[in-house]
């Protein structure tokens, strides 16, 4: 860990001002990912802006019939919220499928969206990694890639997106609200929020330097049956090998997938194939997948998991 300076801010406006003064700064909320990365000098901020006291920790109804989730709402509180459990059960289930109770107590809504890669080579600073050290190469290609992405990958990076919550947010068409260092605010639809690695895997979202997430807005409830099925190598406290988020209303369905792609994965065209069965949906969703020898099993695994999810919902 490199020595850094630290300040605590009391409002989103103060956060924006603080980051304008310190271009090398990072915001810290739960710190469940950032601190680990700082210890390994994968993240080396010179200044930390502690945003835990800016408010933004409530969940409010929107005039459109949805919910506005404050950026600082802890994962535990979000998953336990009565309205979320009733109207957005897929989100609640996705959150409790992730991490551990202790981590969820600390982790925030905004922080969860910004979780970084769990690729072993990203964490190992003795090895090349384009995400950590742009241009140095990708050690995962040809290396240990069993749990990495099979789709949305590039020659520069095959790292999977680790978040469960983000998969559900993607399914629900959430919108991310931010404020810029100059005070201007904007809304970003989640389908445009996480970027594909391409030649720049170190860029993971469309956030600008110093841009601060203030909240996430969920549109009005979809109704239907909600499922989040996470497949993993142990019963808890493991990243998804594959996961399926599903909301099914009569003959209409939405699906999003975790563990298989470089960002939360949703292919709306695949959803139109729902009437043709799980195989058709999975084939469309994973069209163009380029797995490694080690993670090719994720393709049949996703198909089977999806089939099980659909059959459970219909049962």
């Amino acid at each position: 860990m490199k020595a850094f300076t630290y300040e605590r801010v009391a409002s989103p406006r103060a956060a924006a001002e603080a980051v304008r003064r310190n271009p090398g700064a990072k915001f810290i909320a739960g710190g469940t990912n950032l601190l680990d990365l700082m210890k390994l000098q994968i993240e080396v901020p010179t200044h930390l802006i502690d945003v835990n006291h800016v408010g933004l920790d409530t969940i409010e109804a929107t005039p459109e019939g949805g919910l506005r989730i404050g950026a600082l709402v802890r994962n535990t509180d979000l998953a336990a919220d009565r309205r979320v459990r009733r109207d957005y059960a897929v989100l609640s289930r996705a959150i409790v499928a992730g991490a551990s109770a202790q981590l969820r107590n600390r982790a925030t809504t905004a922080g969860n969206l910004l979780q970084r890669s769990r690729c072993s080579y990203f964490y190992d600073t003795t090895k090349p990694c384009n995400k950590r050290a742009p241009g140095s190469g990708c050690s995962a290609i040809g290396g240990f890639s069993r749990n990495l992405a099979v789709i949305g990958v590039s020659d520069a990076c095959i790292s999977q997106h680790p978040s469960d919550m983000s998969v559900a947010m993607r399914l629900l068409d959430a919108t991310i609200e931010t404020v810029m260092p100059d005070g201007a605010s904007r809304s970003i639809a989640i389908d445009g929020f996480h970027t594909l690695p391409g030649d720049t895997p170190h860029v993971e979202t469309v956030l600008q330097p110093g841009e601060f997430i203030t909240g996430v807005v969920l549109p009005k409830p979809l109704g239907g049956k909600h499922v989040y099925r996470k497949v993993r190598d142990r019963a808890s406290y493991a990243f998804a090998t594959v996961s399926v988020a599903a909301v099914i209303t009569g003959d209409r369905a939405r699906f999003a997938f975790g563990g298989v792609a470089t960002r939360p994965w949703r292919v709306t065209e695949a959803e139109t194939r729902y009437g043709d069965g799980a195989q058709a949906v999975a084939d469309t969703a994973l069209q163009g997948a380029t797995p490694t020898r080690e993670n090719a099993f994720k393709i049949p695994l996703l198909q089977r998991t999806l089939a099980a999810v659909i059959s459970d919902i219909k049962a």
Partner: peptide
């Protein structure tokens, strides 16, 4: 069911060298 030090035979080391990637059973197991 889960424990394995994965050898990266290109570089000669155990690559999953932390408890996030080297799985031991948790309570739920």
């Amino acid at each position: 069911l889960m424990e394995q030090c994965v050898v990266d035979t290109r570089h000669g080391y155990f690559v999953n060298h932390d408890l996030a990637e080297y799985h031991v059973p948790v309570h739920a197991d």
